[in-house]
Design a binder for these strands. Structure first.
Length: 259
DNA sequence: ATGACTCGAGTTTCGAGA
């Protein structure tokens, strides 16, 4: 089974690439983030033509997540149970489903904006709630993974130049401690292979030639439980999808499971 | 080759992304 995660940066703008990539990659289960469209505008029909069902949590201009599957879609949970609110609303940042015997969460962790900003505190609370919500599944014998845009680089090696991030979000000890607490539920960071260069970056800013210069970050992560880690045979970043006109600023992370 | 932001709302410019 091929499982992947991809921050598409608008499912509407990315639809031609999304459909083409699903076909060319042969992905069975895809977790997507930053749908940036209301649930009513989600392209269910186009995906169904390719054989994919979709569990969607999206409400408009920002955020939004989904699980796409051609191997079944059951036990859907929409939203993060116990998750915090921002500006009085629970934003659409999580959805989970069981697909062909594998349980997956698609998550879009809040960005945080600036250290000390209310959004930064919200980010840390959100990661705490995620840890609480997944701990039972992490402990299970069934293959399970949290996949998505975590907006945290787990180590200094996961950013192109650590000195460029002094004082910024995504690299702070508090954010990394929140990821470590999540792993402590029994999850392993499934680190993908880069298809070029030495480090498996998954995001490159659109500006200043970041992609050609490989000034990237690894912030799209796959955290799998023991059964998932045992079943996984390979993982890689499909950086080819970051190339050319109309690309997302994130590349898909692909995991092959022997299940 | 991989190339100097992009997206959606919505009206002319802006918040957000990270």
């Amino acid at each position: 089974m091929r499982i992947a995660t991809w921050n598409v940066n608008s499912v509407t703008a990315r639809l031609p690439r999304l459909l083409a990539w699903l076909e060319s990659s042969g992905t069975d289960v895809l977790c997507i983030q930053e749908i940036k469209a209301a649930e009513e505008a989600f392209p269910y029909a186009e995906l169904r033509e390719l054989g994919y069902e979709a569990a969607v949590n999206a409400d408009g201009r920002w955020n939004g997540v989904a699980v796409l599957s051609r191997v079944g879609l059951e036990q859907v949970v929409t939203g993060l149970p116990g998750g915090p609110e921002y500006d009085g609303v629970q934003e659409p940042r999580a959805v989970s489903a069981t697909c062909g015997g594998v349980r997956v969460w698609s998550v879009y962790v809040p960005n945080g904006r600036e250290v000390g900003h209310a959004h930064y505190a919200y980010k840390l609370h959100w990661l705490e709630a995620l840890r609480d919500a997944v701990s039972a599944d992490a402990d299970d014998d069934r293959p399970f993974a949290v996949l998505g845009d975590f907006n945290v680089a787990p180590t200094d090696e996961d950013v192109h130049d650590r000195s460029a991030f002094d004082g910024l979000t995504h690299v702070t000890p508090a954010e990394r401690a929140a990821l470590a607490a999540l792993r402590d539920t029994g999850l392993t960071d499934i680190v993908p292979r880069p298809l070029k260069y030495d480090r498996p970056f998954t995001y490159w800013d659109y500006r200043q030639l970041c992609f050609p210069k490989n000034r990237g970050m690894r912030i799209d992560l796959v955290y799998g439980n023991a059964a998932f880690a045992r079943a996984h045979k390979d993982a890689y970043v499909d950086r080819e999808e970051r190339k050319g006109k109309g690309a997302s600023d994130h590349a898909p992370v692909v995991v092959d499971l022997d299940v």
